[in-house]
Design a protein around this nucleic acid. Structure first.
Lengths: 344, 344
DNA sequence: GAGTACCATAAAAACGTTTTACATGTCAAT
DNA sequence: ATTGACATGTAAAACGTTTTTATGGTACTC
């Protein structure tokens, strides 16, 4: 706990009897070094356990090999897995992660967060904050041109913004179409908060699947929750009251679906006999509810990797001034289980 | 996306017609500056939007105001929340987080991870990796004295190591004692992987509660899972087969408890009438299973804050050479719901 | 054999801060 | 008046790298 580690590039140079520039060239590969000299240097580096100070390196090379992650809702299934994916991809490609969390995306001041990351000289930023409140408009009005690239996660695509996302609309269509094809007639929706882009997309997918089947989608078929199981439970009660003929239900996430199934059970409604349920996320618990929950599986880890890949592309290309647009959507898939079993 | 931001402390000094040292003193507060001058400088800083380059600052001041987090299992309930707590406490106290994740704590090489953090000149490290495999012994054999303090999370206390943790043993006692006091006689255990310290502590708590009640705890009362709902389901089947008189069950985490309840239901066993179940964690879904799950609630966010607090204390005191030991345990609490209802 | 290109290495200049050491001016005490 | 203490400010030295520029040597061309 006490040994300072003052082994610097000078020490290496002295021990290897070469200049510091040569040591630097060996380590960075910026310029060729004779094989014999390189061996000699590497040997000393190993022996002394030298690790270049990344602060000093970043200071002069103007590249910290660090990316800033601004995230939120790590207590939810998706965001925490996505963070894992981002870390994997970044560390595999030699980048470190500087993590900043936002607790209330709707109100929290974002300027200080961004400037702090800039002060740290990050090479790029991944903005993994739900598109709600003024945190979106801050970016859109363009009053804050950044010297580094930014990739947006779970945001509506927009000219000039690079974003990656799950295709929420498609996922919801998948779920709703599946219910229709299983012979269901009256399909309700428990939506997420309308301030969330993802919630709106899932609602849109539900509505468009109904429309494609020639069915109407009316407001009374919809209740809104806040993603929590608790809100799913309440939404279900409210929905059954005003839409009693409902024989199937698409719930915008699995946690609310679990709350809704609990409520159904308390009303002595049988799933899937009386009412079919489909969720969204495929959380680990979904396969072990009673009945096992049919749901839409997103590739959340892959999403994180994709975000980093996109960001690094921008970083590399920004050196070459060849800015490229590349908005990507990952396609979710439907996992059919007991809760949406076809009626005999 | 293109504006370089080359506003440096020199620009500020020039604009404010003072020396760079004065600007530095205003910003760091290291030395007093006359009120009039300070005003003048601050005004220019504001006008130019100057933010000191933290790389340069860290280089000379030998303090990066950054702490390294090495974590694992962010897909689980506890670790992700704890990370949130760490970030909150750190950002409130002016520190940034450098995040490193480990995917397989048992086998992954830890040396490169630590040296990478050291190269980043972090002021301290929080080691939030389950105490399994050689990742523990690496620290214990002391062959790698670090120049910065380290705080261990979810680790067994050890002389010379500072650690913070949940009191898992106490939590398990709480759960088991509650079952005994509710009139249950035969209490089984679904344990976590025996390589995990937390799993062992929970098993120990279960055993000691039984012992305190004058009851034996035999191997046949125990099945081991891997924390997943799937493994809980399988463990339950196995347990009922070899310990059929079981009338209550303590499960080491909520996810396995959900799997176990599903299995019970498939065997037409009623909960809590035929068998009572208590879990551990209090995940959001626990309150909405059927029946609602009695469980042990841990203060996971608080744990993260505590870890940072402890680390910052060490960082501050290491400047003053007054090393202090401070191992802290947070006490969990029991949340009683339907799954452990007393029999009439 | 003179010029030229090239390779490997070295010396020195940056990078943007903080820290150290020194300079000035004022004021109180002698 | 001289001294010392203090308050304020500045110049210059650090911090540990990479990058730029310089240098010496070797081989190659004509």
């Amino acid at each position: 706990m006490s040994t300072r580690q003052p082994v610097t590039i000078n020490d290496v140079a002295r021990a290897a009897q070469v200049s510091v520039s040569t040591v630097s060239n060996v380590l960075t590969g910026n310029r060729p070094v004779a094989a014999k000299t390189r061996q000699q240097v590497l040997q000393v580096v190993e022996a002394l356990g030298f690790r270049p100070n990344r602060l000093a390196r970043g200071l002069v090379s103007r590249s910290s090999k660090t990316i800033g992650i601004v995230a939120s809702g790590l207590e939810y299934f998706g965001p925490s897995r996505t963070l894992v994916g981002m870390e994997q991809e970044a560390s595999e490609r030699g980048y470190s992660l500087l993590l900043s969390l936002i607790h209330d995306p709707a109100t929290e001041e974002i300027e200080p967060i961004v400037t702090d990351l800039l002060a740290h000289q990050v090479d790029g930023i991944i903005w993994a904050i739900p598109q709600i409140g003024h945190n979106r408009t801050w970016w859109l009005n363009g009053a804050h041109p950044l010297p580094i690239p930014v990739v947006f996660l779970n945001h509506q695509t927009w000219p000039g913004l690079v974003s990656v996302d799950i295709d929420n609309c498609y996922g919801a269509q998948l779920a709703t179409t599946h219910l229709l094809e299983s012979g269901r007639q009256q399909i309700g929706l428990i939506a997420g908060p309308s301030t969330w882009y993802a919630a709106n997309q899932r609602q849109k997918g539900w509505a468009s699947a109904l429309q494609a089947a020639g069915k109407a989608s009316e407001p009374r078929q919809i209740m809104t929750g806040d993603w929590s199981p608790q809100s799913g439970e309440q939404a279900f009660y409210a929905l059954m009251k005003r839409y009693p003929e409902m024989d199937a239900l698409f719930v915008s996430n699995d946690q609310m679906a679990i709350g809704a199934m609990r409520a159904a059970s308390d009303l002595n409604l049988r799933i899937p006999e009386d009412i079919a349920v489909v969720g969204f996320d495929d959380i680990p618990e979904a396969a072990f509810t009673r009945p096992r929950l049919t749901t839409v599986r997103q590739q959340v880890v892959e999403l994180g990797r994709l975000a980093v890949t996109a960001l690094l592309e921008l970083i590399d290309s920004s050196n070459q001034q060849e800015e490229q647009q590349h908005n990507r959507l990952l396609q979710p898939s439907l996992i059919v289980r007991e809760s949406s079993q076809r009626l005999r």
